[in-house]
Amino acid sequence: MFLLVRTPEHPDYESGRGAASASVPTRFGLATRETDADWRDHVELLDGPPAKLRTTVTNEQPKTILSFNASPDVPFDRSINAYRGCEHGCVYCFARPTHAYHDLSPGLDFETKLFAKPNAARLLRETLAKPKYRPRPIAMGTNTDPYQPIERGYGITRQLLEVCLDARHPVTITTKSDRVLRDLDLLSDMASQNLVAVAISVTSMDAALSSKLEPRCAAPAKRLAALGKLVEAGIPAHCSVSPIIPAITDEFMEGIIARAGEFGVQSAGWIPLRLPHEVAPLFREWLNVHYPERAGKVMSIVRSIRSGKDNDPDFFTRMKPSGVWADLFRARFRVACKRAGIAKPKFQLDCSQFRRPEQGGQMRLL
């Protein structure tokens, strides 16, 4: 059960969710659209506001499952997202604006109105079986978390991994959940053939802060422990200290790296806070709800590393902030990794073992 925490400044804020409001997208004119007699425009007038904000999942049937990109500053050219939207509710998530394309808000809709793709494994199998397909590592978890809570019931991510294992196709996974350990059997088999690497993002070491910042993610301690379990199983594991939020999470950088090093993690990295499109006002709103006394300081530092703007969308610089604060974060991270014995090796997954899936949807017995 979720309790509505109402204050004069934020009467609609709901505890247990990341965004403080729906944040209607304005890039597509939705905020100024006139009433068209559709029942949705009048539902709250007739029935009143809902007592609880529940998560709903809609099944969709896409025609393709692999997304290709030509971005010069990301280390992959193809990805899979088993779901749209993410129940983890990370207020800083750069993927939130994608919900606006569905006439849904990047705010509360992104974390409560989810979409699942039950036919994802079949589509992937069909794609890999095409004669012209050439393998390169598939990135999972680039837009929404493949191990968010609804994976427990749907199991789409596991089905995708089964297809990749059968086809000997390399995969990289990024998640904020220890639920990845449920697929340890598949991941171990893939790791033994150099077909997988897993990154777990750890933002802080404060469970209370995490419950505000990313309310439905696994607790930080669980994520760090999951990294240790991956290492024990021989699975290449990467600790992503992301995003670094100035004056909110940067104080935990050294502690996270030290703990990851104790678990035997040999790879780590960090990404600065990104605030594209509707994420910027959502994050400002979150600051005003939870940290009003330091909101100005946080945004001042953010702008200082983004050339005076809330966000830098340009290739390369969007991942590499500039300025004194950015240099300080880099120096601190470098020293922390040296102390923890983390050398940040690059994972080179093997594409040479690829074999096209059997036709008809059947997997090999051997």
Results as ranks from 00 to 15, higher is better:
Leu275Phe: 15
Lys212Val: 09
Glu358Gly: 00
Leu195His: 07
Leu66Val: 10
Glu278Val: 09
His102Arg: 07
Glu278Phe: 12
Arg284Pro: 12
Ala120Trp: 06
Leu187Val: 10
Ser307Met: 11
Asp310His: 07
Asp41Cys: 13
His102Thr: 08
Pro11Thr: 15
Gly18Val: 03
Leu227Asn: 12
Gln61Phe: 14
Glu232Cys: 08
Ala226Trp: 07
Tyr291Asp: 00
Tyr83Trp: 06
Arg40Ala: 09
Leu66Ala: 11
Met363Tyr: 01
Phe2Gly: 01
Ile80Leu: 12
Ala51Cys: 09
Glu111Asn: 02
Cys90Tyr: 05
Lys344Thr: 15
Val196Tyr: 03
Ser240Asp: 01
Ile150Leu: 15
Ala51Lys: 12
Val335Phe: 14
Pro170Tyr: 00
Arg339Cys: 07
Met319Lys: 07
Leu209Thr: 03
Ser352Pro: 10
Ser322Thr: 15
Ile257Val: 14
Asp166Asn: 08
Ala208His: 13
Lys117Ile: 06
Asn59Ser: 11
Asp145Thr: 08
Arg179Ala: 14
Pro345Cys: 09
Gly228Leu: 02
Phe329Leu: 15
Cys239Phe: 13
Asp73Asn: 03
Ile256Leu: 01
Ala70Arg: 13
Tyr92Gly: 04
Gly264Arg: 09
Arg306Asp: 06
Ala295Gln: 02
Lys346Val: 13
Gly141Thr: 04
Leu275Ser: 14
Trp286Asp: 05
Leu287Phe: 01
Leu124Met: 10
Pro236Glu: 03
Asp41Glu: 13
Ser304Met: 01
Leu161Met: 05
Ala22Pro: 04
Lys212Leu: 14
Leu230Thr: 08
Pro137Ile: 09
Glu262Ser: 03
Glu358Ser: 02
Pro243His: 00
Arg364Gly: 03
Val265Met: 04
Lys229Val: 11
Asp145Glu: 03
His10Cys: 00
